[in-house]
Simulated assay, not measured.
Amino acid sequence: MISLISNKTLLAVATLATVAWVNLTCQTPAEKEELQADFKPIFNGKSLEGWEYDPVYWSVKDGAIVGEITPETVLKNNTFIIWKGGELGDFELKLDYWISETGNSGVQYRSDRFTEVPYALRGYQADIDGGNRYTGQNYEERKRTTLAYRGQQTRITSQPDSIKETRGFVERNAWKGLNLVSELGDRAELGNLIKKGDWNTIHIVAKGNVMKHYVNGTLMSEVTDDDAKNRMLKGLMGFQVHVGPPMKVMFKNIQLKKL
């Protein structure tokens, strides 16, 4: 009799647990819409009001921010379109992007200005390129370089006190304090989830010293930045056009949620 009651009790507990799990994971359309409502558009699809940029390289076409290099406008330094909405600390950012085969770009965030060059930023970047060699990785522009390759979860540590210049702790375009925690997946297989010559979705989640880059809903890289000497916990956000051959990159449906 005691055994029978125990089994019934276990069954009831399991049933309640299942119901709770279903309630948490199977959100209704209204619940999903409420969560999505926390995201606010920061580009109106019509003009570049609220952005700082060089008009030689940035414009609006067909509801998208367009960055373009032509044979007549070859760049000497990377240039950025910078959101004028202030510094971001903890946030989520979602957007769609399209990039040409020869393109090299990225979403810059928690950055400061590199004042030696007009319209230049220095800091974390969710990398984007037309060949999908780097898309999804975490690259720190003009500072510690690669912090996580695609498919990596990493923990970043500081350079020794004896090394004063940040670039003195960089080797082969990667930070020497890049410590691999785990593999998120095969780099090439993750790259196959990114569509060439088509629109893709980037989702950045930055909370505290942890930064996650998703492409088309898949986690591509995750960085825990324990480097108190060099990390940034807030800063500017923008998009990049990289030096190189003629190219085009487009961004639309840009949605921000402050955490």
Rank of each mutant, 00 (worst) to 15 (best):
I69L: 04
N173L: 10
T218G: 00
L93M: 11
W98G: 02
I156M: 02
E31S: 14
Q125V: 00
I82W: 00
L219N: 14
G191R: 06
P245Q: 05
L233R: 08
K196P: 13
K248V: 09
N209E: 13
L180N: 04
K207T: 11
Q255C: 04
Q27I: 10
R122D: 00
G85P: 12
D225V: 05
E92S: 07
A174I: 06
K176Q: 15
G208W: 04
W51M: 09
E116M: 10
Y109C: 03
V241N: 09
I69F: 06
Q137K: 12
T224D: 15
Q108W: 13
S59N: 06
K76N: 12
T9L: 10
L10Y: 11
T154N: 00
V241A: 12
T18Y: 04
D90I: 05
M237S: 03
R122G: 06
I254Y: 11
H242D: 13
Y149K: 14
D90W: 01
N192V: 06
D96I: 07
W199G: 09
G238Q: 11
S111F: 00
V19E: 08
R172K: 14
V215Y: 13
T157I: 00
Q255T: 02
Y149R: 10
K143W: 05
A126D: 01
F239C: 13
E33Y: 12
L184T: 01
A30C: 03
E141V: 06
G63W: 03
S3A: 15
E87D: 04
T15C: 10
N78L: 09
T166K: 01
H213A: 04
Y214H: 09
G123W: 05
R231P: 14
I128N: 04
S162H: 10
G168Q: 01
K76M: 09
I82M: 01
P71K: 04
N78C: 10
